[in-house]
Amino acid sequence: MRAIKNIKSCFVPLPIENVDTDQIIPARFLKATTKDGFGKNLFRDWRYENNDESKPKKGFVLNNPAYKGSILVAEKNFGCGSSREHAAWAILDYGFHAVVSSFFADIFKNNALNNGVLPVQVSEGFLQKIFAQEADAELAIDLEKQKITICNTGEEEAFEINAYKKTCLLNGYDDIDFLLSIKEDIEKFELVKTY
């Protein structure tokens, strides 16, 4: 997994609530047996008219050249629905390294963290301040200090992240590395478990 420390970038606003993983990556694109290449189908049905890549929907933010950057900002309950990790892979493959929202669905949050995509949960008030920014405004996310800043105005907010997950992200190692390192404990547990 890639390590993450600081992210400073413009952002792509998606002011929609309850964005479910079926929208992030529709089921018909889950047929790959690798983790790559999902980015081109990110938000596929919101992005293209009749599933036709030559007909981008004008109103959709990913088709608006004014918005770019490696941070996606969405309304509350982002990533609900299906547990497909493909949603996190699609977001990463498209080029996003962080998603900001006032609320994340649990499984998506875990999936994102396991793939080096940082979910930054902010207050509803702070989220609206971000949405109020112009297209070229930048956000700075400092994982070490657990702080997100709107660069233009200097407004900032602290965000929470589990200390263990933070260490993993900062160092680019994942849960599997950790679990494999404690295999002896697991084998011992199997001998003494009480059910």
């Binding site: 547990s83 990790e85 493909h86 996190a88 499984i107 396991n114 849960d175 599997i176």
Partner: peptide, 10 residues
């Protein structure tokens, strides 16, 4: 409970 593919690997 449901898990993602990284967790399936775990």
């Amino acid at each position: 409970f449901g898990i993602g593919t990284s967790e399936v690997e775990m």
